[in-house]
């Protein structure tokens, strides 16, 4: 209606959607037709249309994760036409709009694929491995209260900005989904380098990287082979430089920490 292109015509699309009853069930691609899709709709709104149709017909709607629909919560995670979050760079699925598609298109929609991300149902996957990696050390051990004044430690703006850039990771898992090795290195490196850059993070610098990498391996993610798919598909532009920082931190920690285990 009020969108950019009042003349843009509604579209009819064929959707090929991965349907899977639960974690242990066999899944398969099922074809659906959706009609009168406005180019101003977001991709998820297009799926809403499909789900409303399905429900009215008494069929189970397609399960998918989403929440804020403004690109920051990291919930949405669809593999669209062979790309994590679809064809538009720097964009989460919820911010992808149908004007990027054409009338008559066939769109294939699949869940993230990785051993460490089992499918819950249809397009929803379990990303709790990410939480467990953070629990292994993605924090600074300070209790509430008793902290020094915020301006006690000056931090160069450039360092603060770089730490911020790394900290913007939304943990959507596109890096894992698009990596042919299902490696979680970009995710892990974003947290490690954020905290390694900041002086507050230096105290636990060594144990943090050792523990987080150990947990990452335990979860069954693959190893990084520096292909760069992760950074190319990252909706918030986390840079590959973080992986180099992670490697450096890991090597330094292993070489110099007092941890013999």
């Amino acid at each position: 209606m009020a969108g950019s292109n009042p003349n843009a015509k509604p579209m009819n699309l064929t959707l090929k959607v991965w349907r899977q009853k639960n974690r242990n069930a066999q899944g398969s691609i099922v074809d659906y037709q959706v009609k009168d899709i406005s180019p101003d709709m977001s991709f998820l709104e297009m799926l809403d249309v499909l789900n409303e149709d399905l429900l009215r017909q008494g069929e189970e709607p397609v399960a998918f994760d989403h929440d804020c629909r403004e690109g920051i919560c990291g919930s949405c995670n669809l593999f669209i036409n062979g790309r994590a979050h679809g064809p538009e760079p720097g964009t989460t699925t919820c911010q992808l709009h149908m004007r990027k598609f054409n009338d008559g298109d066939t769109i294939t929609i699949e869940p993230w694929r990785a051993n460490a991300f089992p499918v819950n149902k249809d397009l929803s996957v379990d990303r709790s491995a990410f939480d467990r990696i953070i629990q292994a050390g993605g924090y600074i051990s300070v209790n509430t209260g008793g902290t020094p004044d915020a301006n006690e430690i000056p931090i160069p703006k450039e360092i603060a900005d770089r730490a911020f850039e790394a900290a913007t990771c939304i943990a959507c898992g596109a890096c894992v989904a698009s990596c042919k090795n299902a490696s979680a290195m970009l995710f892990v490196s974003a947290k490690v380098s954020q905290l390694a850059l900041l002086p507050q993070g230096h105290v636990e610098r060594k144990s943090r990287v050792e523990n987080m990498v150990a947990q990452m391996d335990k979860e069954g993610f693959g190893a990084c082979t520096n292909i760069g798919s992760c950074a190319a598909e990252c909706p918030v532009g986390i840079s590959l430089e973080n992986i180099a920082i992670l490697n450096r931190e890991f090597l330094a920690a292993k070489a110099t920490s007092n941890n013999l285990a």
Binding site: Y139, I140, V142, T144, G145, T147, P148, D149, A150, I153, I155, P156, K157, A160, D161, A163, F164, A167, Q194, L195, L198, Q200, G201
Partner: peptide, 14 residues
Amino acid sequence: IDQCVAQGVPFARE
């Protein structure tokens, strides 16, 4: 603010 900075929240700086 003190608490968040101690946790490593990267606030904007001069």
